[in-house]
Design a binder for these strands. Structure first.
Lengths: 214, 214
DNA sequence: TCCGTTGTATCACAGGCGTGATAGAAAGGC
DNA sequence: GCCTTTCTATCACGCCTGTGATACAACGGA
């Protein structure tokens, strides 16, 4: 006995419409009316589900963070135990996981685009400050975790400073995302992957060196 | 016999006011009235020097690109010939030059902040598209030039792919700038420099290996 | 059937925006 | 002195924004 409207589905519909508007027009021109129109809803209906513009914006950003977070978690579980893989595959798997954050297809491109707009807005908009910070910390936790796991299974060069390498790899991912979104004609997805693989290769133990796994 | 007002000085004054507003409020809230108020000018006066908002915005971004460009040029000349320096100093000098692009002090932080806001806006605003692209290409030219000069003086590991390394270092710089501007509590200037030096160190020829310079 | 809840749709308001028009002050060549 | 150019200042217009208020339809349990 389903209710004729599912509020959660409605909110998702609105959020998806908002994402499309942000991607197409930029956050600056993403007004309530534009989102309502994109969702083919009356602005009155939209406001029935979101009390204010700020509510909608926060909900949308939180939704995106949740989606990315659960996708990453899923990917981590799919990989399973890293220690029992051969070393080249370890690096490949790590790259595949981190590439979830790169705009390599239209879906991730849209995510990164919206994410960038939200984060730049968050700099001067207190309403998003906590979400932006939480996202930045989450990204660093992921990167650090990838690095420590690689290191634990002996894939990495000895003597690396984890703090510095975490910031370095995070900056690399952020910079690649930024360029790929803002200047796709300069940096295409294949080059992004090349750079990421090169970086991980540089961090890895030289071929022939025995790892210290276990 | 000085004229009572110097139009160029007036424009510079307005542009500086615009930068302050963008840094403080974000590009979204940077209206003509806000800039005029910040410059302590009447909006009518402001519009006497800039025909339209778009004119002002373009002029401001172009001004910033010019300033950064000439500062980089000056720094390059100050360094002079790289070949006749000892290798550790070569890396240090390269890092110092590239660090002109990082938000390490308040002045550069303001620049990078404005630059970021302009570039995200440029994604969906055709008026800034060309300037944004030109800046991205300029940054890559600089990075590539630094890398090839280091390589020519024998400071770099052999076998590096210049295209990939250019994108890698560019992404690293962009990512560091992004994080340092959006999350200064997570990434401070010292860490930025650490990461940059670590990266250049990784690219450099291992100690004890004779360089191929001259 | 009645009624409360939920959803849809519309109007109106105040506020900010860029911009065109215009009036008046100030400056400088003659 | 005057006249032209440059600069300053203000008004008004149309547009778009978020939001409060309100009316009306539709649903679901009693």
């Amino acid at each position: 006995m389903p209710k004729h409207v599912d509020p959660d589905a409605r909110r998702r519909l609105v959020v998806d419409a908002l994402f499309r508007v942000v991607v197409r027009e930029g956050l600056q021109r993403t007004s309530l009316r534009a989102v309502a129109s994109e969702a083919q809803l009356n602005i009155g209906s939209l406001r029935h589900y979101f009390a204010s513009q700020q509510d909608l914006m926060r909900f949308a950003m939180q939704s995106m963070l949740d989606r990315v977070g659960s996708r990453l978690l899923e990917h981590v579980e799919r990989i399973g135990d890293l220690g029992r893989r051969p070393r080249p595959e370890q690096l490949q798997l790590a790259a595949g996981l981190l590439a979830e954050l790169l705009p390599l297809d239209e879906h991730r491109r849209a995510e990164v685009t919206v994410f960038l707009d939200f984060n730049t807005a968050a700099r001067t908009s207190p309403a998003f400050g906590d979400l932006s910070r939480q996202a930045a910390e989450g990204e660093r936790r992921l990167v650090r975790r990838v690095l420590t796991r690689l290191d634990a299974s002996g894939a990495l060069r000895p003597g690396l400073d984890t703090d510095v390498e975490t910031e370095r790899l995070t900056a690399l991912l952020d910079g690649l995302s930024l360029s790929a979104v803002l200047h796709p004609e300069i940096l295409n997805p294949r080059e992004c992957v090349d750079v990421l693989l090169t970086h991980l290769g540089d961090l890895s133990r030289p071929d022939g060196t025995p790892g210290s796994a276990h």
